[in-house]
Computed example of a mutant assay.
Amino acid sequence: MRVLIADDHDLLRDTLVMFLQAQGGIETRTAADLFGAHRLIEAEAPFDLILLDLNMPGMNGLDGLKRTIALQDGQRVALLSGEATRDIVEKALDAGAAGFVPKTLPAKSMINAVKFMAMGEQYAPIDFMTAVDTTPTHPLAEKLTQRELQVLKGLTEGKSNKEIARDLDITEPTVKLHMKTLYRKVGASNRTQAALIAREAALF
């Protein structure tokens, strides 16, 4: 079985490779962005499965997924993400994706999912697809817009403005604007203080 893993986070990519190769009989190739993935797809023998990180450089949302599916006689392509919403996953599956693999999936489940999709099946975790969408009811969360909450979550994860902008598909100046308003709303004077307030409130 040949699997291509395209993700710009080195640690996650290397960990996935280690998990899969430990199974035996699985050959892996990796890329750090969509361009690198496309280059491998066009230059090498067909892959049984291609895993694409939703937020890596070049993806442009689901556009990257659709362009990859259209390459080389339509190889099987699945999304890999830690932040995809159910709506995005449903659109990806409708567009012909082989499935969706959350980055939070345990190693054994992830390996089983990869094998399942490589065999021609479509995969998405049942609990993810049937979960009821809930909006935080914390008093602090109620003060913030959905976008401000997303930016604040990025702050608590230690991400830079550039990383938050890329993850949310918005510009850095827009991120700064959201930060300015959320600082005022939560009573913070800087990003570290905002992240601490969010953590102490167990917002994420």
Rank of each mutant, 00 (worst) to 15 (best):
M1V: 06
R2F: 11
V3N: 15
L4V: 09
I5Q: 11
D8H: 15
D10Y: 10
L11G: 10
L11Q: 15
L12P: 09
T15Q: 13
L16S: 10
V17G: 08
A22Q: 10
I26S: 04
I26N: 08
T28Y: 14
T28K: 12
R29C: 12
G36I: 05
G36C: 12
H38K: 15
H38P: 01
R39Q: 13
R39E: 07
L40R: 15
I41Y: 10
A43C: 01
A45G: 01
L51M: 10
L52V: 02
L54E: 03
N55W: 12
N60Q: 09
L62N: 10
D63A: 03
K66C: 06
R67P: 04
A70M: 13
L71T: 00
L71E: 03
Q72V: 02
Q72W: 09
D73Y: 00
D73Q: 07
Q75R: 14
Q75V: 01
R76Q: 11
R76A: 12
L80A: 06
L80N: 10
G82T: 04
A84Q: 06
T85M: 05
R86Y: 07
R86F: 01
R86K: 02
V89F: 14
E90T: 07
A92W: 09
A92L: 04
A92Y: 14
L93T: 01
D94Y: 14
A95D: 07
A97T: 04
F100C: 00
P102M: 07
L105G: 00
K108L: 11
S109A: 02
S109H: 02
N112F: 05
K115L: 03
M117V: 01
A118H: 10
A118E: 10
A118I: 02
A118W: 02
M119K: 08
M119T: 10
E121T: 00
Q122R: 13
Y123F: 06
A124W: 01
P125L: 00
F128I: 00
A131N: 02
V132C: 08
V132S: 05
T134G: 12
T137M: 13
L140N: 12
L140K: 09
A141Q: 15
A141H: 12
A141C: 11
E142N: 09
K143V: 02
L144S: 04
L144P: 01
E148P: 01
V151A: 04
L152K: 08
L152S: 08
G154I: 04
K159A: 08
N161L: 05
I164G: 12
R166E: 05
L168N: 05
L168P: 07
L168Q: 08
D169H: 08
I170E: 04
I170L: 14
E172M: 09
E172G: 05
P173D: 03
V175N: 13
L177Q: 15
H178G: 03
H178K: 09
K180T: 06
Y183A: 05
K185N: 08
V186A: 13
G187S: 10
N190R: 12
N190D: 12
E200Q: 14
F204M: 15
F204Y: 15
